[in-house]
C-alpha cells in the first residue's frame, strides 16, 4: 500500500488541477464516439465520475488526457455493451498513397484553395461528424487532440498499425468530402475527370 496517501482535500485539489481542465477535450472525444450531444453529455459526466473515483490509479506526471480518453472510451463501450470485433485492413502504405493521389487531384482541380479559407473549420467539423466509425474517433484523437499513434492505440485498445490504417483512411475520406464541398461551393472546376496522377 502507498504509505503517503494524501488527505482527501489534496486529492480533490490534484483532480481539479490535473483532470478538470480537459473537459473540452473529453467532450470532443465523447462527441466523436456518440455523435449526438445528449449522449455526449452523459458520457462526459460518466467519464469524470469514474475518473474521480479511480483518481488513485492515475500516475502523477503521466498524461492525464490520455488517461481520461481511455476511461471515456471504456465508459462508452460499457454503455453500449458492445465490444465489436472490428476488422481493419492494415494496408496503411496503400492508404497513404491513395491519400496523396487524392491530394494531387485536389490541387489539380483547385479545391485545395479551400484550405486557406477562414470559414473552412465548420465544413471540416461537419465532415468529421459525418465520418464513419472507427475512423472518426481515431482522427479526433490524433489530429484534433494531438495524441500520438501510440497513445491512440492505448486509448482505443487496438494495435498501432490499426490506428495508422484508420487514421489514413479517415483523412482520405475527409479530403474526399472536402473536394465535394469545394465543388458545391464553386471552388473547384466541376466535371474535371479525376486523372491518374503521374507525379507519384
Amino acid at each position: 500500500m502507498n504509505d503517503s496517501v494524501p488527505p482527501a482535500d489534496a486529492r480533490d485539489v490534484e483532480f481539479a488541477r490535473d483532470a478538470l481542465p480537459y473537459m473540452d477535450d473529453v467532450y470532443r472525444f465523447a462527441y466523436s464516439l456518440t455523435r449526438n450531444a445528449a449522449d455526449a453529455d452523459d458520457l462526459v459526466q460518466e467519464t469524470y465520475l469514474r475518473a474521480f473515483r479511480s483518481w488513485h490509479t492515475f500516475q502523477p506526471g503521466s498524461d492525464a488526457r490520455r488517461w481520461l480518453f481511455t476511461i471515456c472510451r471504456n465508459a462508452f463501450l460499457r454503455s453500449r455493451e458492445k465490444l465489436r470485433h472490428e476488422v481493419d485492413v492494415e494496408d496503411s502504405d496503400m492508404e497513404t498513397l491513395a491519400a496523396v493521389m487524392n491530394q494531387g487531384e485536389m490541387r489539380k482541380d483547385g479545391s485545395d484553395q479551400l484550405l486557406s479559407r477562414v470559414d473552412l473549420a465548420p465544413a471540416l467539423t461537419k465532415a468529421l461528424d459525418e465520418l464513419a466509425e472507427p475512423f472518426r474517433s481515431t482522427v479526433i484523437l490524433v489530429d484534433v487532440e494531438d495524441q500520438s499513434y501510440d497513445a491512440a492505440s492505448e486509448v482505443l485498445g487496438v494495435p498501432v498499425g490499426t490506428v495508422r490504417s484508420r487514421l489514413f483512411r479517415g483523412r482520405r475520406q475527409l479530403q474526399e468530402k472536402l473536394r465535394a464541398y469545394a465543388r458545391d461551393a464553386g471552388f473547384a472546376s466541376a466535371g474535371n475527370p479525376a486523372q491518374e496522377p503521374n507525379d507519384v
Partner: peptide
C-alpha cells in the same frame, strides 16, 4: 498540402467545446 490539411483539421477544436 498535407500539413495545411492537418492544420485545418486541428483548427476544428475551436468549433466545439
Amino acid at each position: 498540402f498535407a500539413e495545411r490539411f492537418l492544420a485545418a483539421l486541428h483548427q476544428t477544436r475551436e468549433d466545439r467545446s
